[in-house]
Measured scan of single mutants.
Amino acid sequence: SIEEEIKKAEEAKEKGKTFIHGDFVATTEELLDELLKRLRKKL
């Protein structure tokens, strides 16, 4: 679910890890923020 993806992305951000969502690879905090923004729009 979208909620689960958001939670996983937030955890990755806290730990400074890379998060992959489909073909979107978030390797930096900026990219994770962008991904979180996109996911929240889908809610």
Score class of each variant (00 low, 15 high):
A12V: 02
F24C: 14
E29A: 15
E34N: 04
A12Y: 04
A9M: 06
D23K: 07
I6L: 11
E30T: 07
K17C: 14
E4L: 10
H21M: 10
K8T: 03
T18K: 08
H21S: 13
E11V: 06
E10G: 02
I2T: 05
D33I: 12
D23L: 12
H21T: 05
K37H: 08
I2N: 02
D33P: 00
H21D: 04
I20V: 12
K8L: 12
K13C: 13
K17E: 14
I2W: 06
L32K: 01
D23A: 12
E11W: 09
I20M: 06
E14A: 14
K15Q: 13
A12C: 15
T28Y: 08
K37D: 13
L35S: 00
G16N: 08
G22A: 06
K41L: 08
T28W: 12
K41I: 08
A12P: 01
A26V: 08
E30Q: 09
R38Y: 15
A26N: 02
K42M: 15
V25K: 05
D33A: 08
G22M: 08
H21K: 02
K37P: 00
E34I: 10
F19V: 05
K8S: 07
D33L: 10
E11S: 05
K13I: 06
E14D: 11
F24V: 05
K37V: 10
E34V: 05
E10I: 12
A9H: 00
K17D: 12
K42T: 08
K13D: 01
T28S: 10
G16M: 04
R40L: 13
E3P: 05
A9F: 04
E4I: 10
V25D: 03
S1Q: 08
E30W: 12
K15W: 10
F19S: 03
F24R: 00
L31E: 15
I6H: 01
R40Q: 09
E30F: 09
E10R: 03
E4S: 10
K15P: 01
E5Y: 13
E10P: 01
L36W: 01
L43Q: 07
L39W: 05
L32G: 00
K15F: 09
V25A: 10
S1F: 11
I2D: 03
T27N: 15
K37E: 15
E3Y: 11
L32W: 07
T28F: 12
D33K: 08
E30G: 05
L35Q: 00
K41M: 08
K15C: 15
H21Y: 15
E29P: 15
E10S: 05
E11G: 03
T18C: 15
T27V: 07
K8Y: 05
E34T: 04
E14S: 12
I20T: 10
E34L: 11
T27A: 12
A26L: 07
E30S: 10
L35P: 00
K42A: 14
R40F: 13
T27S: 14
T28G: 07
L36Q: 00
R38G: 07
E5N: 07
E11I: 07
K15I: 05
